[in-house]
Simulated assay, not measured.
Amino acid sequence: MSSFFRWAGAAIAAALSIHAAQAQDYPWKPDRPVTIIVPWAAGGSTDQMARIVASELEAELKQKFVVVNQPGASGSIGTKNAMEAAKDGYTWAAGAASDVGTYRVLGMLDTGLQDWNLFFAVANVSAISANANAPYKDFGDLLAAMKSGGTPVAVSTAGLSSAGHNMMESIKAASGINYRHVTYDGGNPAVIAAVSGEVPAVSQLLVEMTEMIRGKRLKPLVVLSEQPVTLEGYGEIPPITKWLPNMAAPVNYFGIWAPKGLPEPVLKSMQMAWDKKIANSDVLKRYAAQRSAIFAPIHSQKAHDEAFKMVRQTAWLYFDGGKAKVSPDTLGIERLK
């Protein structure tokens, strides 16, 4: 055998050895498929994010990560199923932190952020868009229609506690508007309702509207932000503060989570995979850039602390709007200053 082939063989063996060592760094190696429950309909923001995360984790941990849609009751059904599954790392829930953080306030599910191991991938911006033929040229027109005292404007959302509903309730608290809330089992069905003209406007996450906006099927009117948001392929969408300057606009984190009580090797491996794979994911970065989302690969206590800002705002919106079953202050949720 020539010296070249001996050298090449040694190099390949060394590379395989390094790869094997890297693969063995994870203290938990799942030996069967891992389920991620998306508690909303397919095609919405949670579903989009979860499928990318699943693919990235699958590549890193060398095991299938299967996304299963279980919509219903504003996401609480699928979340409850994840809560009640064995705490072995093989069942996770996906969604928005503001949802899982306020289920107890709404009397829907006895859980809060502190009950979960949180792993976030992106933060999403809420928006309101109108049907392409609706008579609103900007958010000021829609705001005026909602203040007119006439027939309430119908606005579709993914349901009670969804990002879109939270945005509408924030606007209602800040301006005294009235609207008719039309609910669907997910962001995608809510968006389609506005596209088809079933309702004149939709309040959901911008990530769920982008293709319809680029295709001129929807007119974006406003984003829940203190600054304008630029949507790739469309242009600039004005912030809510243009019309309601004192309105708070914390961001809404999206990711996956499993109940506290996971075996330490499972938790350690997921933290390692998040820091190595998710935090450097070009696919997630492109997704965020194309959908005007924020790339936010954080986990553990930092994830809890950041998400709790939106939870505080949302919980008190429910309370002030008469929708809370439990007062937030009895749950340690103070008002957002």
Rank of each mutant, 00 (worst) to 15 (best):
A15M: 14
T241Y: 11
K276W: 02
I192D: 06
Y234K: 01
L143C: 05
G150H: 13
L336Q: 13
T46Y: 03
R180N: 11
W116K: 11
L221Y: 10
N188F: 04
A132L: 12
N178E: 15
A121E: 08
W40G: 07
L317D: 03
I18N: 05
F5L: 09
W316T: 02
F65L: 09
Y26A: 07
N117C: 08
P220T: 06
N246P: 04
K323Y: 12
D47M: 02
E211S: 13
A288G: 09
P238M: 14
G150T: 09
A248T: 13
M272T: 13
Y234Q: 04
A132R: 15
R51T: 15
A154F: 00
V191G: 05
V125Q: 08
I240T: 00
V105R: 04
L267I: 03
I77C: 01
K260F: 01
A13R: 05
S225E: 10
F139P: 01
H304C: 07
N69Y: 01
G43C: 06
D115G: 07
P152A: 14
N246R: 13
I278T: 12
I240Q: 00
T183L: 01
M212F: 15
L224V: 08
L224P: 00
A293V: 03
A154D: 10
A97F: 03
P238K: 13
H19D: 08
H304Y: 15
G89R: 04
I77L: 14
G140Q: 11
P328R: 04
A93E: 04
L336N: 13
S269G: 06
T330A: 07
G43S: 09
P228S: 09
E198T: 06
P71G: 10
G186A: 12
G95Q: 10
N81K: 15
Q24P: 02
M168K: 08
S269T: 02
S3F: 09
T241K: 12
S129V: 01
V207K: 07
I298M: 08
V105D: 05
T102L: 04
T210H: 09
A10E: 14
R32T: 10
A93L: 02
